[in-house]
Design a protein around this nucleic acid. Structure first.
Lengths: 148, 148
DNA sequence: GCGGGTTTATTCATATATGAATATTATAGT
DNA sequence: ACTATAATATTCATATATGAATAAACCCGC
């Protein structure tokens, strides 16, 4: 027998603890799927994320701006751009306005690769969409927007 | 004006894409909170996780068993146990049954530290519980259980 | 009993992430 | 104009994670 809804929403911190872990695990599962899908086109999730911001912006971003958009630390971006540059997906250019700054430019190959990555990500999204019912969608939105 | 629910649950792969990212981001936020809380007692989330499995089991676990419980690769556990051992939270003992195996034993200090970590985690859980309404709880459960 | 395949942990190379330290350049306040 | 402060990217040390390669020990079928 289920508990009445009133009781269910009270005194359930143990269940919530499980849910917190479930949420984290579920996200890891999704990340694995994305990594797997992106690997087929020679990208990692980190690389795809960086390319996405650069492509979306449409103009060179300084590494600091990248770090902010990716909500990570600058030294991380330095290394990520090193690898992207080694892959030929991005180029570093100096900023004439500010001689401290370095901006990242997506190469033609980088744009192609990003597009291929986006197609892969869409497949995972479609799969994800199937696992969510319409009513759960709204509840999930509320929960996730509370966690920022 | 909202779309009718029927339309809302159809043709919404773009919104679902956002939700997929939201879910991943939300999990990262939770992980950061856990890391932050655990840092106060000198633990990382990875270390706390390993200790939790060992404490829960109540007896020494081989590193392979640890890897399975933590759903990660064995070489990861090797390094993690290196660090736990350096912290004095765990000891390696040989397995008399199987001379290939190495088992991890929690030390007294390890048990204390784990208990302290568990108290920290509970605080984060309580905070998390407050952000979830009773009705959303069930929806979230359904969604997360579909992602295993 | 033994030879071949499996399982064990470790090591190595690499990717991702953080934070501290450093050097260079910009900018504000005086 | 000069100095103090801030912001830039990089480097370094470290933690976490993966996967490939290795060595040791196990186990099965013969």
């Amino acid at each position: 027998m289920n508990k009445p809804a009133k009781l269910r929403s009270v005194n359930s911190s143990a269940a919530d603890g499980q849910m917190m872990y479930s949420l984290v695990r579920a996200a890891h599962v999704l990340e694995s799927r994305l990594e797997e899908a992106l690997e087929e086109v020679g990208l990692s999730l980190a690389k795809f994320g960086a390319l996405s911001h650069l492509v979306k912006e449409g103009e060179p971003l300084s590494l600091s701006e990248c770090a902010m958009k990716m909500t990570c630390v600058r030294s991380n971006v330095t290394q990520l751009v090193d690898r992207l540059e080694a892959d030929g997906l991005v180029r570093r250019v100096e900023d004439p306005e500010d001689r401290r700054a370095v901006r990242a430019v997506v190469t033609a190959l980088g744009k192609e690769r990003h597009a291929a990555g986006a197609r892969q990500v869409e497949k995972v999204q479609a799969e994800f969409a199937k696992t969510i019912s319409g009513t759960d969608r709204n509840a999930l939105e509320r929960v996730l927007s509370a966690l920022r």
